[in-house]
Amino acid sequence: MTNSPITNRIGAVFVHVTDMPKAIQWYSELLGLPIHADSHEGTIYSLHMDGGSDLLLDSNRRDDSSQNNKTQLFFETKKLMDSYHFVKEKGIEVVTEIEEHDNISFFTFKDPDGNILMICEDKRKL
């Protein structure tokens, strides 16, 4: 194994958005976080996540034609069914219904910009 000056940890994940105020409101409500002042002249908004990596909303989206139809990231939960009902009650578009496997269960949904997100329950951590 070689030594690397790069830390083995993800510092942040970018989610590209088209309407920063709407995205801030949507993600803050989804995750139960208070809204705070933005940074980078309003083009970056950091959602501080438990466990390390922050979620960075980035309004520098330039090209909607490259919209990715794959899952961008997942949020953890210990209560998948409660999380599913919470998302549905908020009127959020569910892309895939709950899938259950031996060690994990999950479902996917879209944010207001069409980014596909996942909520995942790791049964090994329960």
Rank of each mutant, 00 (worst) to 15 (best):
S65N: 12
D63R: 08
S59R: 12
S66L: 13
R61M: 11
T71Y: 04
K70W: 11
L56N: 04
L57H: 01
D54R: 04
F74M: 02
R62G: 03
D54V: 02
N69Y: 12
S65H: 08
S46D: 13
R61W: 13
E76C: 05
Q72M: 08
L55C: 08
L56E: 02
K70F: 11
S65A: 05
N68M: 06
K79N: 12
K79I: 05
N69P: 13
S53P: 13
S65V: 06
E76L: 02
D63G: 01
L47N: 12
S46K: 12
S65K: 10
K79M: 06
D58W: 06
Q67Y: 07
K79H: 12
N69H: 14
N69W: 09
T71I: 12
Q67M: 12
R62V: 02
N68D: 10
F75G: 00
S59V: 07
L55M: 09
N68S: 15
L47M: 14
T71M: 07
L57E: 00
S46H: 11
N60T: 05
D64L: 14
K70L: 13
N69I: 11
D50S: 14
S65Y: 05
N68T: 06
K70Y: 10
E76Y: 09
S53Y: 01
D63N: 10
S59Y: 05
T71G: 09
D50P: 15
R62E: 00
L57N: 01
L55F: 05
D64M: 13
T71W: 00
F74S: 04
